[in-house]
Nucleic acid binder design. Structure first.
Lengths: 243, 243
DNA sequence: TAGTGGTCTAGACCACAGC
DNA sequence: CTGTGGTCTAGACCACTAC
């Protein structure tokens, strides 16, 4: 653990616990640096961590003000449906509709960055919140991930967590959002009429060394989950939101 | 202009011009710092700027590698339809369908953070790429912005640019993405069938001091424009993409 | 083992906010 | 004016990569 992460962690804890409520101004950097017995540069590294998490915002000449007392996690927040749901107080569910081994088509191979014809695992899941289906997920895993995913119980709510426990941690993700009309299968599994509008999120996630972990196509019912992007000059934050 | 921004700007130019192509490794920080005659800390500030723009990525023990030779702009990239289109080589168009003054409804007042009943300006525009309509935009402006927007020509392609030239610069934006079925008016103006799927982007943007600049509802034809989010442990980047 | 980015220190001066 | 964050310097040592 580096010193600035320790400071960020402790300062974040004090904010979450209410010592500095929303709208409050933190003590000056100089004072906080003395308090934690670090150089001002190190303290500023810690503040930058909390800024990226959306908790703090600086203003030259004034000070650092508390924007939020909720910790967000960037990638993880976007990546794991189950962890997002739990952090918001919903009960996530998952149900495997289909799971089959196969060989990579040209398109899948390009997305997964493996040779065409390589072994892949295709899984279709219906994801729910508090018992109601809200999203249909079709994921393709490359051969090296398949042995970890295949033995999971069909009702496993968090595949991401299971992968992390197996030492496979996601480090990068690219998501593309658009709208699409429900196919016959989409309609049947989500319980809507064919060609009704769905929010489609195509995603490719990779581990630290660049290997692709999965390629997926998620289709959300409108009105249940939407995606929110907060952008400022210095940082962007992305997350799901209800409704 | 601060020194680290100057360095970032020059280094970015060298990358765009091809001196360091995609995949290339930059000279070591120590060497670049000597070259630019700045301290290593200042050079690292410059590299951080280019990292946030998605051009560079560091790896401990190796070096900084070039990820992209395209400059992105964070908020601006997300905010201005016209500037995004031009940067990608498309010709953006805009056409005002309706423009009317009115008083803020309860919902509009909450979004714009003004008292209900305050004067507002409501504008509906069809936005196009290379002559084809791709998006329908309904924007509500608070009273203090209306005098700048109202006199603009109905075919003005970039409202953001016009506002910036009037000294009104957007500093923060929140965007919420979901899918929605086309209403009768949506269908008529975009040339699709009623209840066909559209990507809806609701946005609220604010200036530096926190005043809300506009509240909008944009509806995109599927297959024309989508939104892409690249997330990693250290940073998130958002932008539009074609198709 | 040599070279790289990651972290940290202890100062300094500047630009801006707010009284 | 005083206090704040923003920038900058000139060093140092550590963790990791690649040979």
């Amino acid at each position: 653990m580096t010193r600035y992460r320790e400071v960020a962690s402790d300062l974040g804890r004090r904010i979450v616990e209410g010592e500095f409520p929303i709208g409050a101004t933190l003590p000056a950097e100089e004072r906080l640096a003395r308090e934690y017995e670090v150089a001002r540069g190190t303290l500023r590294n810690a503040l930058a961590v909390l800024e990226r998490q959306g908790m703090l915002q600086p203003r030259q000449g004034s000070g650092w003000t508390v924007q939020s007392t909720l910790r967000t996690q960037g990638v993880a927040e976007l990546r794991s449906f189950a962890e997002w749901a739990e952090s918001r107080g919903f009960v996530p569910s998952g149900h495997v509709v289909r799971s089959e081994r196969g060989t990579a088509t040209a398109l899948e191979a390009r997305r997964l960055r493996v040779p065409p014809g390589d072994a892949v695992l295709r899984v279709t899941r219906v994801r729910g919140l508090d018992g109601r289906p809200v999203m249909l997920e079709r994921t393709v895993y490359p051969g090296w991930v398949a042995p970890v995913v295949e033995p999971l119980p069909p009702e496993e709510p968090s595949v991401v967590r299971a992968l992390a426990e197996a030492g496979i941690a996601m480090a990068f993700g690219s998501h593309t959002l658009d709208a699409i009309a429900a196919s016959s299968e989409d309609a049947r599994l989500l319980g809507v009429r064919r060609s009704s509008p769905l929010l489609r999120v195509r995603r490719v996630t990779a581990v630290r060394d660049g290997r692709v972990l999965e390629s997926g196509d998620d289709r959300y019912l409108p009105g249940e989950v939407s995606f929110q992007v907060d952008a400022s000059a210095s940082s962007n934050r992305i997350g799901r939101t209800r409704g």
